[in-house]
């Protein structure tokens, strides 16, 4: 045994201070609060889609997409947050149970697009031709704002074995939650629109976060 390791152990023990173990619950609470705040922001500043406005006044929605679209992205975001909670520890890894919500949401959307492509191809093109700047900028900007909050509250304490994946999942989580909030306003329900512009905004957020993860989540 050399002296250097013994000295290091002495130094580390001498410098020891109590720490609060990393817990997932504060992240979940913050994520739920952020989703609620984002939805309220969209509701009051962008205005609700007609079906949501009708629901607020106690009327049943005319289309299930009024609630299904926000739910789809909320489930996607929750699955990604679950993955973030797992991946933040050194021994953490991507588990099939956390991927399940993401896979289910993706499968639903792809199935809807395939159905439209075969049964009403004109609708697919109509969806793609809709203006989407507000949609994508809101999702990307809101998702990145959420990512900053998540980084300060959670990611800066992480010690992951998979920095790129953790970054991507964090971006996917915040982007999907922002998409869920934006869906309170947006009544463009074409499957092609959702898959290209909504999912595109979420994918951009996840890509930026993956790059940030590669750069800054090493430890």
């Amino acid at each position: 045994m050399s002296d250097a390791p013994d000295k290091l152990i002495d130094d580390l023990a001498g410098a020891l201070r109590p720490v609060r173990p990393l817990q997932a619950r504060p992240m979940w609470l913050a994520a739920a609060a952020a989703l609620a705040m984002a939805a309220l922001y969209i509701f009051f500043y962008y205005g609700p889609r007609p079906e949501i406005a009708a629901m607020v006044h106690g009327q049943p929605p005319k289309t299930m997409m009024a609630w299904f679209k926000p739910l789809l992205f909320a489930v996607t975001g929750a699955g990604a947050f679950w993955a973030v909670a797992d991946l933040a520890r050194p021994e953490g890894r991507l588990r099939s149970r956390t991927l399940l919500p993401l896979m289910v949401a993706l499968a639903i959307e792809v199935a809807a697009l395939l159905r439209d492509a075969f049964m009403q191809p004109a609708e697919v093109m109509t969806g793609l031709q809709q203006p989407a700047i507000l949609c994508m900028t809101t999702i990307v900007c809101g998702g990145l704002a959420g990512l900053i909050v998540l980084w300060r509250l959670w990611l800066k304490r992480a010690a992951t074995s998979y920095p790129v994946l953790l970054g991507a999942m964090a971006g996917l989580a915040t982007g999907a939650f922002m998409a869920a909030a934006y869906a309170v306003h947006c009544d463009r329900d074409w499957s092609s629109y959702i898959l290209v512009y909504y999912a595109g905004g979420v994918a951009i957020t996840a890509g930026v976060a993956a790059w940030l993860g590669k750069r800054f989540l090493r430890w």
Binding site: P5, L12, P21, L22, P90, A159
Partner: peptide, 12 residues
Amino acid sequence: LLSLHTKRDTYD
């Protein structure tokens, strides 16, 4: 050992 020290809060 240094990493253990700095990241000890990530142990559940």
